[in-house]
Amino acid sequence: MDTKPQSTLPVLVEPPRGAEPHAPLGRGYFLGETRRQQPLPMRESLAKIKNWFRANSLWVMAYGTGCGGIELRPLTTARFDFERFGMAMRPTARQSNVLIISGYLAVKSLKRVIRAYEQMPSPKWVVGLGSCTINGGMYWDSYNTINRLDLYLPVDIYIAGCMPRPEALLAGFGELMAMIKRGEANGWNHYLENFDWYKENQKKVINDWNMPDYNW
């Protein structure tokens, strides 16, 4: 009898094409040794100061997932200029804190968004932009889009409208900053605490699931 504790992780990851894996399937390429489940309540010393820093330096991941991406250009450029609030676009997930889901999400995009979200270091926040992220908007009956974003990712703040004006986005980010300073924007905690629930939902819509399970 093998007494070694069996991994609780389901074997999910296919090896890359043309490769004969030496490591156990699903562990060698993508997974770390242990899955770090961190129940992360915001109870730490200096929390207020840290949150002030976090709120005033939001780095947005440069990923326009839907139509809303078109209003992110004016938001970053001359007329609306969100950089004056300390926000900036970062091209890599490892260095960004805010993920803007700009509009509807096709199922194929959802997969990439989840991967990008899980690679971001915490604390991280998700901003749902436009009506489509709330209830599907005008694509409520489309066969290829998801209707409710918060079934799959923990949304910290929604900015409604189709599409919301840059001013609305700025107001939304202002609200997000205030929430962070108050210590209320804890979406990533929620994601970790209900990790299995989120994964179950994600797997329901994504049929060809070949994603690594990690959460840090």
Partner: peptide
């Protein structure tokens, strides 16, 4: 700062896609 978690070889930011084999 935070204690770093070691991630595995192909766990890289790859434009949201899964990287192919190490060769590529």
């Amino acid at each position: 700062g935070a204690k770093p978690t070691k991630v595995n070889q192909l766990d890289i930011v790859y434009s949201g896609e899964l990287p192919p084999s190490p060769e590529e």
